[in-house]
Amino acid sequence: MSNHLAAPVDAPSAADAAELAHAASAARAGLASLVRGVAGQRARRVLLALLLPVTALLAMEFSVRGGLIPSNLLPAPSQILDTLRDLGAQGLFGHIAASTLRVAAGFASGAILAVLLGATVGLSRHAEAILDPTFQALRAIPSLAWVPLLLLWLGIDEAPKIVLIAIGAFFPIYMGVASGIRGVDRKLIEVARLYRLSNIALTKRVLLPAALPAILTGLRNGLSLAWMFMVAAELIAASKGLGYLLSDGRETSRADIVLAAITLLAILGKISDTLMAAIEQRSLAWRDSYA
């Protein structure tokens, strides 16, 4: 038998090494450029988001300082900051914590009930015929109309406040869940039936993903309404909370306290909505949408 010696493998030449180094450098430069582009896009979005409020605040400041608007009716933003600083020394965090806890408890209660009943109505035509007309009628009742009834039923403790916030959060979430499930494309259901999916698998793999955008939109709307109903709830003999500060500012003719409380409500509402939007974006990362 003749022995065949294997041909030696050529070592990479200097030109090949230089080409590889150039490719790696180009990849690093491209990645760095992409990161800078994303960071620059986020910075531009932040600047655009701040454009309107900063312009409005500057216009208010100069209008009040120039005497165009009486300061007792519309305090300057700098005066509102001073009021917030004074309130901070007088227990402002306690008011913020009280309102936030009430919103969290009311929103959680209303959301759980709304998801259960909304899913029931969305999945069953009989449940829709029984429950939906009543819920649509109750949805039209203004928030303040519930206040005297809740006072009669539950007294003036925390219970009526949380129930009122739960009522405010319930209806938009219920509508989102029910309409999201009812709006699932019938062709998706038919394909799932062809694959003989069980009801649990059908709900998990078809109905829930298809209805999730509407459900999350309902949750965001419900959270916003929970903050709005919280103000009405804290008019029920509250001794702490941002709604109490609003009432106190009205009774003492302190427009700066009223505007300080409104500012805090706007900030807290925006923070909670941003968190909910982040959850929505993460949950719907699979969706190939226009956005």
Score class of each variant (00 low, 15 high):
residue 44 R to Y: 08
residue 41 Q to Y: 06
residue 162 I to C: 01
residue 206 V to R: 08
residue 136 Q to E: 03
residue 290 Y to G: 10
residue 156 I to Y: 14
residue 110 G to E: 00
residue 243 G to N: 06
residue 125 R to C: 02
residue 224 S to A: 15
residue 172 P to G: 06
residue 226 A to I: 03
residue 101 L to C: 07
residue 76 A to R: 09
residue 18 A to W: 07
residue 158 E to A: 03
residue 289 S to V: 01
residue 266 A to K: 04
residue 257 I to D: 00
residue 276 M to T: 00
residue 123 L to C: 07
residue 254 R to I: 13
residue 6 A to H: 11
residue 159 A to F: 06
residue 90 Q to C: 06
residue 158 E to T: 15
residue 62 F to Y: 08
residue 257 I to F: 07
residue 248 D to A: 13
residue 126 H to F: 13
residue 102 R to A: 00
residue 69 I to S: 04
residue 38 V to I: 07
residue 210 A to I: 03
residue 187 K to S: 12
residue 162 I to M: 08
residue 109 S to W: 04
residue 148 P to C: 05
residue 161 K to V: 03
residue 51 L to R: 01
residue 224 S to G: 13
residue 60 M to D: 10
residue 288 D to E: 13
residue 85 R to S: 13
residue 154 L to R: 04
residue 67 G to E: 02
residue 138 L to A: 09
residue 97 A to L: 15
residue 134 T to K: 07
residue 283 S to C: 09
residue 265 L to D: 05
residue 50 L to W: 06
residue 216 L to C: 03
residue 238 A to Q: 12
residue 65 R to Q: 10
residue 23 A to S: 13
residue 157 D to F: 07
residue 225 L to M: 04
residue 208 L to F: 14
residue 199 N to L: 14
residue 7 A to F: 06
residue 69 I to T: 04
residue 185 D to F: 09
residue 193 R to Y: 02
residue 34 L to K: 15
residue 291 A to L: 00
residue 246 L to A: 08
residue 44 R to H: 12
residue 254 R to K: 14
residue 147 V to C: 05
residue 51 L to Q: 02
residue 280 E to Y: 03
residue 163 V to Q: 11
residue 288 D to C: 02
residue 42 R to F: 11
residue 215 I to D: 00
residue 107 F to D: 04
residue 178 A to N: 03
residue 19 E to K: 05
residue 11 A to D: 10
residue 228 M to N: 01
residue 58 L to W: 05
residue 138 L to N: 06
residue 83 T to H: 08
residue 85 R to H: 12
residue 166 A to V: 00
residue 158 E to M: 02
residue 249 G to H: 08
residue 181 I to P: 12
residue 41 Q to T: 10
residue 30 G to M: 09
residue 145 A to E: 11
residue 198 S to A: 00
residue 106 G to N: 09
residue 163 V to K: 06
residue 149 L to Y: 01
residue 110 G to F: 00
residue 238 A to F: 06
residue 150 L to K: 01
residue 107 F to C: 05
residue 29 A to P: 02
residue 121 V to E: 01
residue 229 F to E: 04
residue 107 F to G: 04
residue 92 L to A: 07
residue 177 V to F: 06
residue 138 L to Y: 11
residue 82 D to C: 01
residue 268 L to T: 11
